[in-house]
Computed example of a mutant assay.
Amino acid sequence: MQGENVSLHCRKKDANSSYTAKFYKNGISIGSSSSGNIMAPTVSKSDEGLYKCSIADAGESPESWLSVADLGFPQVLPNRQQFFQGEPITISCEGLNGRTGWRVMKKINGDIRICASTWETLIGSCNICNAYPSTDSGEYWCEHGEIQKSNSVNITVSGHPTVPYFKFYLVLYTGLSLLLVVILLILAGLFQHHKHQQTIRSHTKEMSLTPDDDTLYSKAIYTTLRPGETELKGHKKRAD
């Protein structure tokens, strides 16, 4: 695993005699040891390769592939790398590769520091309550025991909305506009319905107050014409 120390051992069948072992990586000598051991400190991905050893009068060992496991990345919550000014950010390394006790480090404008007020107080997550471009935009990674170092992530804090947020606000504005149009159409329909009902009620009331033709013709309207003569609407009649 990256950051760990790796020991290479070379043994001779006849362990009672002293010997010097030479070690090779990809066919190139990387050192020798009279004890038959060699240390590769704080290995990284660049240390991967084929290793072998040789002992005088004993020959060479078979080659063995050394694989260096990746330490992974810090966990960023919310799970993205671009943020707005004032947003909260949590960077966690706990449980990385099954270990605890990680510290979150950051590099801002070339300055490397811990992601906390003091080195002694922070083991675990780094909580940024209100992100700010000049103090929180940078490179973040995890360290364990000042030796093991994880891969890094780059976090950008912007003071202005980015394209995804612009699209979100555009969709929100469009949706609210459509909702307003629907509400206005419903109100207009209700107004027209109410107006139509009022017209019907008014017309019904007028019809109930207007006399019909039979009533008008059934009434006798007399007009005095001259002494001894009257007129009944529609014909004349002389008084007896």
Rank of each mutant, 00 (worst) to 15 (best):
P62I: 12
D57W: 01
G36V: 02
S61K: 09
L66Q: 08
F84R: 02
S61Q: 06
E60K: 11
G86S: 07
K52V: 05
S67R: 15
S92R: 02
G95A: 04
T90I: 15
L77K: 07
R113K: 14
I55D: 00
C93G: 07
T42Y: 08
N109M: 04
V104Q: 00
S44Y: 12
P78Y: 06
N109Y: 00
V43F: 11
G36Q: 05
E87R: 04
R80M: 14
V104C: 05
G95T: 09
S64E: 12
I108P: 02
Q75I: 11
L71Y: 05
I114C: 02
W102G: 01
V43T: 11
V76M: 05
V43I: 10
G59I: 07
M39K: 09
I38H: 08
A40Y: 07
R113Y: 05
N79A: 14
R99T: 10
K45V: 14
A69D: 14
K107E: 09
K107N: 09
G101I: 06
R80P: 06
K107R: 05
K45M: 15
Y51V: 10
E87M: 03
A69H: 14
S92P: 08
I108L: 03
P88G: 00
A40T: 08
V104I: 09
M105E: 00
L71A: 07
N109Q: 06
L66G: 06
W102E: 01
E60W: 09
P88W: 03
V68K: 07
T42I: 12
S46Q: 02
P88Q: 00
A40L: 14
S64C: 06
L66T: 09
I89K: 04
S46N: 03
G86H: 05
L77S: 14
S54M: 04
W102A: 05
I114P: 00
K52Q: 12
T100M: 03
E63P: 00
V76A: 13
D47F: 14
D70Y: 02
M105N: 02
R80N: 11
A40K: 13
V76R: 00
P62L: 12
A69E: 15
G49L: 01
P41T: 08
T100N: 06
P41C: 06
T90R: 04
V68P: 03
C53E: 00
I91D: 11
Q82D: 10
T100W: 01
P74L: 01
R80L: 05
Q82H: 13
F84M: 15
K107W: 01
D57S: 14
I114Y: 02
G86I: 03
S64W: 00
W102P: 00
P88I: 03
L66E: 08
S46D: 10
S44A: 15
F83V: 01
G49F: 04
F73P: 04
Q75M: 09
E63N: 04
E48R: 09
I114F: 03
E48F: 12
I112C: 06
D47L: 14
F83P: 01
G110F: 01
L66S: 09
